[in-house]
Write a protein that binds this DNA or RNA. Sequence first.
DNA 1: TCTATATACTTTGTATTACTAAGTATATTA
DNA 2: TAATATACTTAGTAATACAAAGTATATAGA
Lengths: 114, 114
Amino acid sequence: MNEKYERQMKKGVLDLLVLKLLEKEPKYGYQLITELRDKSGAVFLLKEGTLYPILYRLEEEGLVESRWSEPKDRQVPRKYYAMTEKGRQTLPEIADVWRQISRGIRQVMEEEEV
Amino acid sequence: MNEKYERQMKKGVLDLLVLKLLEKEPKYGYQLITELRDKSGAVFLLKEGTLYPILYRLEEEGLVESRWSEPKDRQVPRKYYAMTEKGRQTLPEIADVWRQISRGIRQVMEEEEV
DNA sequence: TCTATATACTTTGTATTACTAAGTATATTA
DNA sequence: TAATATACTTAGTAATACAAAGTATATAGA
């Protein structure tokens, strides 16, 4: 992909995708990176330096909350993130912003392409 | 719309939309603002301070070129922007970046929604 | 045993960009 | 005459994806 444009176009949607992945159940950071990679068909290959600050920001905004796992059987400790009530209210709003913008883009792009 | 997210999600796509609108014929800045507003269904309401710097950047990158209109019959002078050869090569590349990213987002969003 | 790799989280710094706000100037309309 | 629409410019700000480096543990291979 054209890296320059790729980077900019991804701005803003990561919050949406992370929230979406947390919708059903709590997950930890590294898990989110691999799920995002797999489900997006390797379009979203996040580095830790990208994802973790997003989680910190979402937590600061009150959309998610975290707790450390008590590490059983010699397991590396993990920080699980779960959606808050506010997060559940906000997710559909953000999803709607995405829908409107992508529709606007489609309309401009498909214009006169009949 | 949720302004905070709206702003970020629009990042990067404006170059694409502006190039798309210039594909068929040269246009001037103010014209691009109104066309973008109308064709997007008022999703993209650009201020001059948003559009013109985009055009300067695209020109600096060699994707478009500008010329001032010689103002006939007491008309305000206009700066027309036209696609360059390089611009015509780059447009499909950027459009493809958009397609891949939006497909990746759709896949994550639609996951388990059956 | 040693080493490399995968897992897992943190932090600092940088580049890019949409937007606000202000300014300049002309033409048209009320 | 004033207000509005047209048309372009510029300076400054905030937000964020990413690179890069660091810390630490578990596991697999040589």
